[in-house]
Design a protein around this nucleic acid. Sequence first.
DNA 1: GCGACAG
DNA 2: ATCTTGTCGC
Length: 218
Amino acid sequence: MQVQQLHPWPDTVEEAEAVQDRLRPRVELTGPASFDLVAGLDVHYHGDGELTAAVVVMDAGTLAVAEQVVAHGKAAFPYVPGLFAFRELPALVEALERLTVTPDLLVCDGYGLAHPRGFGLACHLGVLTGLPALGVGKTPFVGTHEPPGPERGDWTPITYDGAVVGRALRTRPGVKPVYVSQGHRVSLDTVTAQVLRLAPRYRLPEPIRRADHLARHP
DNA sequence: GCGACAG
DNA sequence: ATCTTGTCGC
C-alpha cells in the first residue's frame, strides 16, 4: 500500500514536536464502525538500535491471517517520552508499503490521542496512511483514570487537561486493563468495541500479539 | 522543586 | 524496549 512521504525527518526534539503539531489538525475523530481487514503493528529491538517492524493483516471476522510482512531498520530517533513514534515510524512505514493488501484499520501498540500533545503513534500512522487507526497501551501514560470494574468489557475514562482522551479497558477478567485511544478516523466507542472484539482470549488484541511474535521470530 | 514519563 | 527464576493457572 501507499504511505505519505515522511521527510523532512526531524533531528531535534523541537523539530519533532513541530512535526506533531503540524500534523495534529489532520486527525479525524469519527469514521467507520466496522472493518474487514485489520492490521496489527509492532516493533522488536535487538541491540545497537537495530529493530524489526512487523505488520500482520487479519480477517476481522475470523481472525485468519491474510498477509504478514517485516522490515528491518534502525531506531530513527532517541527515546524521548512523547516522541516515541519517531523511533519506529520509518520501519513501520516500510513494512506497510510492502503490503499487497490495504487494511481497513491499523491496531498500533502505543497511544493515539492519549498523548502529551494529543498526537501519539496511532495518530501519526493514521494520518500518514489516511486509514482508521487506534492505539493500545500496556501502561498508563498521560492523564488520570479510575480502575475499571473486574469484568471483561468494563472501562473507565482517561482524562487529561479536562478532556476525555481514552479509556482504561478490561479485556480479561481480573487482569490488568489496557489503555486505548483514538488514532485516526475512529470514535472512542468504536475503538473500545474493536479492541474488545480483537482480544477475545488474551489481554492484548490478537493482531498485536501476532505482530509481536513475528517481529521476534522473523 | 523533583521525579516520573508510550516502547 | 531489555536485563531475568521460579511459580501459578488454564
